[in-house]
Design a binder for these strands. Structure first.
Lengths: 152, 152
DNA sequence: GTCGTTGCAAATTCTTTGCACCTGA
DNA sequence: TCAGGTGCAAAGAATTTGCAACGAC
């Protein structure tokens, strides 16, 4: 019960029990820093000591999402849901379409738009999601061989 | 074969036949202006004269997406794919978290960010996806009873 | 001991596919 | 005519659910 204490307080604060699986899932998500699918988590967990059922992974992620501990998203097309830890900092990512590197940025261009929309069409922004695709420093200078690049 | 001619040229240009269903689907997507699920299209088409199979809707949309006539996306959580006509204009949407209305906007705040990122971290933006959540005109003045609202 | 959590299996939902028949060019 | 499009039924993939056993407090 070494690691358990690490997330126990967090979980209790949300009114849910601290369990082996819940702790492991939080730990994995924290390590990964990037959004993961339920299946990725499932596989990573099977490799560890624990043996876990896929439905438990889904249930746990659902619970976490409802408590806002994780954020559920879906990237284009593939149809699989992604889950990432909800650090409450506001952040956007750049995704390199060539090497698939993910880069965090501080910039957020929504601020001005917020005012514009409020005045123009009376819409109150409460949140947003922005993903940016392109070529990172390392890849932009390689030949642009876009044949196998993912389409944003 | 009144309407057929309307999209025939477009379809032929992409090397695919103009058929009753294909024309209807293009027409519906054009009318709707907003992304639709395969099922929404299916229901709308059944109500019309035609009788169509859901698998045909999916196949048609797939074909269109591969020709870049439509764009396939997935909104948060619900897990259903959305399809919208690919006018090559750039557009974003506002999603009201209360009534789930979807509003198109012309504004796009990425322009300036593009330069900033290029200079700051040498990243070449090629595309992006932006979704904005909030309260629309009709809902913002109702009580903010956020209990049952979908969380962005 | 109690109530929430989990495993297991089965159900559901969304989407894809195989194949025979139909249709547009 | 004939390759390509469509309906139907069945398969597949991702996710959810019912229920009995288990585990945290």
């Amino acid at each position: 019960m070494d690691q358990n204490s690490k997330y126990k307080e967090l979980l209790n604060r949300e009114g849910i029990k601290s369990t082996r699986h819940r702790n492991s899932i939080l730990e994995l998500l924290e390590e990964s820093k990037l959004p993961m699918t339920a299946e990725q988590l499932f596989i990573a967990l099977k490799d560890k000591t624990s043996s876990i059922d896929l439905s438990t992974v889904y249930r746990t992620l659902d619970t976490f999402a409802s408590k806002n501990l994780v954020i559920k998203t879906t990237r284009n097309d593939d149809g699989k849901a992604l889950y990432e830890l909800n650090h409450n900092e506001h952040k956007h990512h750049l995704l390199c379409v060539k090497c698939h590197k993910l880069i965090s940025i501080e910039d957020c261009p929504i601020g001005e738009l917020k005012e514009t929309l409020k005045n123009k069409i009376d819409f109150d922004i409460t949140g947003h999601k922005l993903e940016i695709y392109g070529y990172c420093h390392d890849c932009k200078n390689l030949n642009y061989d876009s044949k196998n690049d993912e389409r944003p």
